[in-house]
Simulated scan of single mutants.
Amino acid sequence: MKNFYTYLLLVLACVFWGVGFPIAKVGITYIHPFVFAFIRFFAVGILFVIVFRLSVFNLILKLKSNFTYIFLMALSGIFLYGVFFLFALKFAKASDVSLISGANPIITAVIAWILLKENLSFFSKIGVALSFLGIVFIVSKGNFGILYNFQFNLGDLFMLVATTMWAFYSVISKKALKRIDVFEAVCLTAFLGALMFFLPAIVFGNIRNIGNYPLKAWLSLSYMVVFSTIFAFSAWYKGIEKIGASRSSVFVNLVPVFGVITSVVLLKERFCLYELIGGFLVIAGVVLTNTRDLKSVRIKS
């Protein structure tokens, strides 16, 4: 197969992202979410400088000339996404969280349609409706009486907000990456996001206990830094470079699949019928919206 290596990289990226849901849930069992996020993104920034041999001087210049874009990316995609994502994992099943995250391309398409006036075709709108129905099915656990009585799981709602924040990040990134290299952008947003988490980590997270974290906690953090961020990100953009963003975007549908599988295997979570139906609707909606012959939005989740 001509692009076998490229396809393998894209699948691996989705595997590492999907597995990251239960792995992160293990980590925040022992580490306060604010501390977890601060350490993760600070380490990511350091490793990006080292691995991709980025010039610190050049990074400072890029930050000064693109501060508004980088600040908004860090605020939406690192800080706000990180807060709601990590607290979602504290209150909800990792499998539910991963399924809700699968709707990110749909939410991104809607935001881009509203803010950037990008075209959303008739079939794309049907896809949006399908994915929205899937989210409702997951949040309600298949019982629509929960919606009527407003008895939602707090973690599910947190993940819905987190997914929306990542969608805003995706839309902002699309404009920002016309002005700055993608690896420089990720490095700077990681550092700025870590800075945003620093004070909350001190005030609420008791970061002084960092030396007492168990091995499980450090393994979880290491996985999120090295595999779920550095490797997955590099593999993903290598795939986009080889076969383009449109064809690569199809692979995003694998993320919630691997998230659910590993949540069941690693955390012994029970996979329910409502998750199967809701997950199918979400993924079907994303596939329909991202059909190649439709003129629609295609941004990585």
Rank of each mutant, 00 (worst) to 15 (best):
L9R: 14
L10V: 09
A13P: 03
C14Y: 00
G20D: 11
F21T: 05
I23R: 06
I23K: 02
V26Y: 04
Y30G: 01
A37P: 00
F38C: 12
I39T: 08
F41E: 04
F42H: 00
F42G: 09
A43S: 15
A43V: 05
V44I: 15
G45H: 04
F48T: 07
R53S: 15
L54V: 06
V56I: 15
F57T: 11
L59N: 11
L61W: 00
L63M: 14
N66H: 13
N66S: 09
F67E: 03
F67Y: 14
Y69D: 14
L72V: 04
M73S: 04
G77N: 06
F79Q: 07
L80S: 13
L80G: 11
L80N: 11
G82F: 00
V83M: 07
L89V: 01
A92T: 10
K93E: 15
S98Y: 02
G102S: 08
I111S: 06
I114F: 12
L120S: 06
S124N: 12
S124H: 08
S131R: 07
G134W: 07
I135M: 13
V139Y: 02
K141N: 13
G142L: 06
L147M: 14
N149M: 11
F150R: 13
F152T: 07
N153L: 10
G155S: 05
G155K: 07
L157Y: 00
L157A: 10
M159Y: 05
V161Y: 02
T163M: 15
F168H: 06
S170F: 00
V171Q: 10
I172N: 08
K174T: 01
K175D: 11
K175A: 13
K178Y: 00
I180C: 08
I180Q: 11
V182Q: 13
F183S: 12
F183Y: 15
E184A: 12
V186G: 08
C187W: 03
A190N: 14
F191P: 01
L192S: 03
L195R: 01
P200T: 11
I202C: 12
F204E: 08
P214A: 11
K216D: 12
A217V: 01
W218N: 07
W218P: 05
W218I: 12
L219W: 06
M224L: 15
V225N: 01
F227D: 02
S228P: 00
S228N: 14
W236L: 14
Y237S: 03
I240D: 08
K242C: 03
R247P: 00
S248R: 02
V250E: 12
V250D: 09
N253A: 13
V257D: 10
I261D: 07
S263A: 14
V264M: 12
V265L: 15
F271H: 00
L273D: 04
L276T: 01
L281V: 06
L281I: 03
V282C: 02
N290F: 01
K295L: 12
V297W: 06
R298F: 05
I299W: 04
S301V: 03
